[in-house]
């Protein structure tokens, strides 16, 4: 038997793109590829046009505030090869900008609008950038960022019922009151 389709794709991609940071198998039928942000558009173009990755499953974003980076993840599927690619690239969190891929897939627009709204990532070339998608008149930082504290927001905007307004974290409550164990 020759190479599996997964290995074959891996080798092909390595040959074609010298600038790949890393490429690894993430389980059966999964390839996880790390790229530099400048290569992402050409890579996706190549994958779609020449390697039959015709289906865009998802565009997602992971926030890594400790590294000061956003990690944009493109998930592409090739039906003929039965492979799902996870293309990842890290971009600066202060100035998150990336090239839009709306010309390749119409549904990419929706993903990009959502990421713009939820993380504040700007996709250049998407003419609908900045449109309201889910939120309305949002004046806080983009809510899916890790530094947006949803608990604080909830406590500020919503109240526990009157009977429970003294609500405490249970373990703390017990340890404060029970047998004074923490004190010794």
């Amino acid at each position: 038997m020759g190479f599996s389709k997964l290995t074959e794709t891996k080798v092909l991609l390595k040959q074609y793109f010298k600038d790949i940071i890393s490429i690894e198998e993430g389980g059966e039928q999964r390839l996880i590829i790390d790229l530099q942000s400048k290569d992402i558009t050409s890579m996706i173009n190549h994958l779609k046009d020449f390697m039959d990755f015709k289906h865009l499953s998802m565009i997602s974003c992971v926030d890594w505030p400790e590294e000061n980076k956003f990690e944009i993840v493109y998930i592409l599927t090739s039906y003929s090869k039965n492979i799902v690619l996870m293309l990842k690239t890290k971009i600066d969190r202060k100035n998150p900008k990336l090239q839009s891929i709306m010309s390749l897939w119409p549904q990419a627009v929706t993903y990009e609008i959502e990421l713009n709204e939820m993380f504040g990532v700007f996709f250049e070339g998407n003419d609908r950038m900045g449109e309201e998608f889910i939120l309305e008149d949002w004046d806080d930082i983009p809510p899916m960022r890790r530094d947006f504290d949803s608990l604080e927001y909830a406590n500020k905007n919503f109240k526990f019922r009157d009977e429970r307004k003294d609500k405490k974290i249970i373990r703390e409550f017990i340890s404060e009151h029970y047998d004074e164990w923490r004190k010794k």
């Binding site: 992971v62 993840v73 549904q107």
Partner: peptide
């Protein structure tokens, strides 16, 4: 899509329902 960071909590989960494409761009 799920990303974990080695802690007891998820770093990120993203759900892709078919309606996300069917209901909007399609």
């Amino acid at each position: 899509f799920m990303a974990s960071d080695g802690s007891e909590k998820l770093r990120r989960v993203n759900v892709r329902g078919p309606a996300y494409v069917h209901g909007i761009s399609l």
